[in-house]
């Protein structure tokens, strides 16, 4: 379990993989706080389309980002099966709306391959590498820029 802390090339890390549409993505398990079911969000005025709104997470106000829309896919139609991955991004906690969580992967850093050139610009700014697992391709993404505030700072 503590391999994730190791930094050398052969160290293994754990990732949580999830589905957006038909594509599979994953994020580092260390940034995931919890996974919960979909609850309707309160929309925020004047917010980008991928910000679904805010929900009540045990007394804290949590913003929900539609990861599909954020990555440039058609927006997710939230169903009862949709899942919110509560993740830590910097000092903030953000909820990521995805279609389903597929599992936990244990990989070593050397299995992460560079991002292919074919991906769209939007996806490329989030995807840091791809993994080949059991014949599936899973994109490893970074969450640093999911919130508009972070985007503004970067600009």
């Amino acid at each position: 379990m503590n391999e994730a802390h190791k930094t050398d090339g052969a160290a293994s890390r754990e990732l949580i993989s999830f589905l957006i549409g038909t594509q599979e993505f994953c994020v580092d398990i260390m940034s995931v706080r919890e996974i919960r079911g979909w609850t309707p969000a309160t929309p925020l005025p004047h917010s980008p389309g991928y910000v679904r709104g805010v929900i009540n997470l045990r007394g804290a106000v949590l913003s929900i980002v539609d990861l599909a829309a954020r990555l440039g896919f058609p927006p997710t139609e939230p169903s009862a099966r949709a899942v919110i991955i509560v993740a830590q991004v910097g000092h903030q906690v953000v909820g990521l709306l995805v279609d389903a969580v597929t599992g936990i992967l244990t990989v070593t850093s050397d299995t992460v391959q560079p991002t292919p050139d074919v991906a769209s610009d939007m996806a490329r700014s989030f995807v840091t590498g791809v993994l080949a697992v059991d014949g599936r391709m899973i994109s490893l993404i970074t969450l640093d820029h999911v919130l508009p505030a972070a985007e503004r700072q970067a600009a």
Binding site: L44, P45, H46, V51, V61, L62, Q92, V93, A149
Partner: peptide, 12 residues
């Protein structure tokens, strides 16, 4: 509840 802590300022 603060909106700023987990999101940012929303005008209005």
């Amino acid at each position: 509840k603060s909106l700023e802590s987990n999101y940012g300022h929303v005008p209005g």
